[in-house]
Amino acid sequence: MAASLVEVHIRINGSSTTTEVEPRQLLVQHLREDHHLRGTHVGCDTSNCGACTVLLDGKAVKSCTVLAVQADGREVETVESLAAPDGTLNQLQEGFRFEHGLQCGFCTPGMLMACTSLLANNPDPSELEIRQSLEGNLCRCTGYEMIVRSVRWAAEHRAGREGEK
């Protein structure tokens, strides 16, 4: 059976895109292959590891378990959206740098996006809340301790909080 192509309109990192895709194409493939956004990783391809986490309409999803056609008409943000165009890291990325929240870095894009979604709803999460919101993200290197500290660093250094004690 020749499945026909479907046109999808997805806003990716603030830019409107229109692409013809096979309906079976996964969102992660769409991002990496059609839009060359290779920051989003595929770790397990079975919705376990969270390396492929992106934001879909502002909420964290595993892009290996979403079809590109399901994102039609919606907004996707990937790890590439975090730093400023000149490469300046945002507060969360700065936290990962400062607290050594990564070793090999493979899980990091997913960790960053899951934490972005957390901090958007809860700018000052407790350690427990951070751990709970990372239940869907696996790291084989850091033991999580430093990732949790990185997120706390970002919360403590968030814009508008300077001078608070």
Binding site: S47, G50, T53, A60, V66, G136
Partner: peptide, 9 residues
């Protein structure tokens, strides 16, 4: 159920 990403979908 699952994890936060799973619950989004």
């Amino acid at each position: 159920v699952g994890d936060p990403q799973v619950r989004t979908c």
